Simulated assay, not measured.
Amino acid sequence: MEIRLDGKTALVSASTGGIGFAIAKGLAECGAKVILNGRSEQSTERAKQALLAELPDAKLETVAADLSDAQGCQTLIDSVSDVDILVNNAGIYGPLDFFETDDQTWENYWQTNVMSGVRLSKALVKSMQDKGWGRVVFISSESSRNIPSDMVHYGVTKTAQLALSRGLAKRLAGSGVTVNSVLPGPTLSDGFRAMVDEEVKRSGKSVEQVAKEFIAANRPSSVIQRAATVEEVANMVVYVCSQQSAATSGASLRVDGGVVDDIA
């Protein structure tokens, strides 16, 4: 199966590193024009140059906008005209005890993880409807179904993304626009690498080994018993952005290594 996205324009939010960058690269490799987004001009330009170093013929644009509030989302919306693919990847996470999580923290997570996707979808999906073709993907998490006790605030927002994705898919039924969620599990992203950096330095172990030990201790239900790579997550996203995935909509697609312990 060869996936081609020539003539399509894709917007990937928060795509200057980690999973978002890998998704942007995967879409560009398939011929799509990709709009990169990050919080600053420096980060977006750095991501663009990194992609061009690997894919000299890639068609890339950049928009700097912080999607943690309505104003930042509007900045991004005003900077793009017509997209065929929207990947809602913007998100924040971090451990914090439920009883120490104040209202402002809840609000910050809600605005970034949920409302950024709401705002971008409201603004950009109607043109997909008019064309009769489009792809919307929400990057959720296995934490949406396997709520971490030390990140309840995060898990709640990721579960909300599943409801948002399913509801929007039903709203767009029969339009030619599909909407899906992708649920990564523990992944060797920039954020995860930063989280285990001290342990890597202290132990002298590789990031991969520290990740494997983290999963054994904290996600013992993992079937693959290792962290996924960002490319493995991106592969699923590229597929659901393709013409080949036309019969898949309203789905929650797990790339969690089997962490969620059920057969659904």
Rank of each mutant, 00 (worst) to 15 (best):
T187D: 12
G191K: 11
S203T: 13
L183V: 00
V182W: 00
K212Q: 10
A217G: 08
I224F: 14
R219P: 13
V179Y: 06
V179E: 11
I224G: 14
Q209D: 14
M195P: 08
V207C: 10
V196I: 08
E198Y: 09
K205D: 11
T178Y: 01
D190E: 07
L188H: 09
T187F: 08
E231C: 03
V233I: 05
V196N: 02
R219A: 11
S203E: 15
A217Y: 08
V210S: 09
E231K: 05
A234G: 00
V196L: 08
T187I: 14
S222Y: 07
T229Y: 06
S206G: 14
V179C: 05
V207Y: 10
A228C: 04
D197N: 15
L183Q: 04
F192N: 13
P184N: 03
Q225D: 01
I224E: 12
G204V: 09
I215P: 04
I215F: 04
E198A: 14
E198L: 11
R226E: 07
V223K: 12
E213R: 01
M195Q: 15
I215A: 01
N180E: 03
R202Y: 06
T229P: 07
A227L: 01
E208G: 06
E198F: 13
S221Y: 06
A217H: 05
A211S: 08
F192S: 15
T187L: 12
E198Q: 14
V230Y: 01
R226N: 04
A194E: 11
I215L: 04
A216Y: 03
E213V: 06
A234Q: 00
M195S: 13
E198W: 11
A194M: 15
T178Q: 07
I215E: 04
K205N: 14
